[in-house]
Design a protein around this nucleic acid. Structure first.
Lengths: 201, 201
DNA sequence: CGCTAAAAGCAAATATTTTGCGTTAAGCCA
DNA sequence: TGGCTTAACGCAAAATATTTGCTTTTAGCG
């Protein structure tokens, strides 16, 4: 990737970047992504195609760049009173966003980028959101699952299903949450895992 | 996607398909994927570019098509005596394959395809392999985890990390297996989850 | 305020993708 | 088997997209 945010951030360069991003976002709403071309984006952004080629290389890189920006969370997770319900609310919104047609397209664009930094950023966004919820829970003195555990046992199954299989049903992701944050923490891992298994079908 | 396996499978059409696939595989070994073009593939395959455009649409579809084929498992999982060790062996191989540079590229190619059938196939391949291991274990009278549980709690975390984060370490994926198939099934889900959390760091 | 160099613009040269039309050869039915 | 139908291929021209060398603009800095 040629484009980095910290190279010549002021003035024209930044103006070009934002108008190109804006053009991509607009065009993506108006047309099929398979019909999107760099000359089209350039025209809409009021920029020469060669500028885009020089800065981003190809359409895939540009789309990846735009996608990461759009997947950036626009605020803190909702505070609903308890960590558990914060988590449930956040997961619900996460699934909705990621499983929608545009959401899936964004994720694909992020993953399609040859270098992995884009995907890494998305992962970080998610971890940060979960860390905020965890920190709030901790401040309230509530027990709360480790962020890495949540990534492995809640986020990963959801994303895997969205990407490779079918969109997970509410019953399913609720069950995923219940496993790592049971209301009565007495059941064994296997029993709970079995419960999730049945919810998955 | 225009190309489907069951349309005119015999004769010339099949010959073209296989020579194009072969050309892609060969060229991918010889050059960077970003330098690969359809005219190049066409020349190598001894075919007109327009044939490829008409059949596959664009390079991404073609690469996705080739990738699915290459991700197809070439046999049954190794029989190592017990279900648990079969699973451990299979997971180890799975991680190695998927986390290698070419493996990651194949998965990205599969996901980059606009329609989701390619990704679905890969998911099915994995489920089938696990089902074989599960069936063997069952035949031996061993307890064994449900395939859906394995997908959520072993495969998904592994794939998520490979795609979005870092390649999971052996300690980590061993811990994932231990959660769904503990040697002593007494520990609670939370305790085990905590153990995985620490292994992840 | 002037210098330096990174980034943008422009346009010509290349490379690719698309498309219309003729040709080949599977698949099918008598 | 032999002819018929049509999907798939080949070819080449036209339309687009990409690359590249050179010029111009302008951000960053002394």
């Amino acid at each position: 990737m040629i484009a980095k945010e910290n190279i010549r951030p002021g003035g024209r360069s930044a103006r070009v970047q934002s108008s190109v991003h804006k053009a991509v976002r607009e065009l993506l709403k108006e047309m099929d992504r398979s019909d999107l071309t760099i000359p089209l984006v350039a025209t809409r952004a009021g920029v020469t195609p060669s500028t885009i080629y020089r800065r981003w290389g190809d359409l895939q890189e540009l789309l990846g760049d735009v996608a990461v920006e759009r997947l950036q969370p626009d605020g803190e997770p909702l505070d609903t009173g308890t960590g558990r319900s914060d988590l449930r609310a956040w997961v619900e919104q996460f699934v909705d966003e990621m499983s929608s047609a545009p959401g899936r397209a964004l994720v694909r664009d992020v993953l399609a980028t040859p270098d992995a930094t884009n995907a890494g950023k998305c992962c970080s966004f998610t971890k940060q959101q979960l860390a905020i919820i965890a920190k709030r829970a901790e401040a309230r003195g509530e027990p709360f699952a480790d962020v890495d555990v949540l990534m492995d046992y809640v986020v990963a199954p959801i994303m895997y299903r969205i990407l490779f299989d079918d969109v997970p049903a509410p019953a399913h992701y609720h069950a995923l949450i219940d496993v790592v944050m049971p209301e009565q923490p007495q059941r064994t891992g296997l029993q709970v895992a079995a419960a999730v298994g049945s919810a998955a079908r």
